[in-house]
Amino acid sequence: MTDPILSAEGVTKTYRVGKREIPVLRGVDFEMQPGEMVALLGASGAGKSTLLHVLGLLDPPTEGRVRFEDQSVSDLPGPKRAKLRHREIGFVFQFYHLIPELTALQNVKLGTMMDQGPLAWLGERKQHDQDARALLDRVGLTERLTHRPDELSGGERQRVAIARALVANPRVILADEPTGNLDSSTSESVLELLFEINRESNIAFLLVTHDEGLAARCDRIVRLRDGVIDA
């Protein structure tokens, strides 16, 4: 076994609503190897999305910590966490979250703009443009570069979101029910795309899903129940 790329150590997360405390995660220990495809299963409200946000450094854990490679990252200052998120982690959400004003190509290119100043970015703009076009080509949207999100179907939007998640060359992709909003045949083709990318690259995937059949196709299944990972 190699060293894990992303891991959680005794992560708890407790939300506070007024005076009430709602424990969602109660001590999650979890590891992901590079290039691994992991399915995360759990009932609705089990805390799958919460765990994903903690792992993706969007939400700090109440206790415990998140490691990236061998570095403890959940307690880093905000800008450092943002930088790591940009460079190493890609997100795909159920509701795509594309920016409605931007074309497909611009939405993908946005993913290259996050840590460069205008001059540096413009200096490399040809490279960025090529990368974005190549990725949209890879996800099968060669013909849709200048379409805005409202001119795209659900499956196409999710493909743009996948291209955007890939454009900064992350080593981990966190996908929260990426096909939860798509019909079954579209789902199948989007999932096929994710599996292909996983096979071609060394990117680790954490796939949140309710679908046991889909989970079975992954390298490994983890289940979240009562706030802990059920082996």
Binding site: A82, R164, A168
Partner: peptide, 16 residues
């Protein structure tokens, strides 16, 4: 506010 979530996920800071 819709876009703020995804911008953060892509690596934006609140200051950004």
């Amino acid at each position: 506010t819709h876009d703020i979530g995804i911008l953060t996920a892509l690596g934006a800071t609140p200051r950004g």
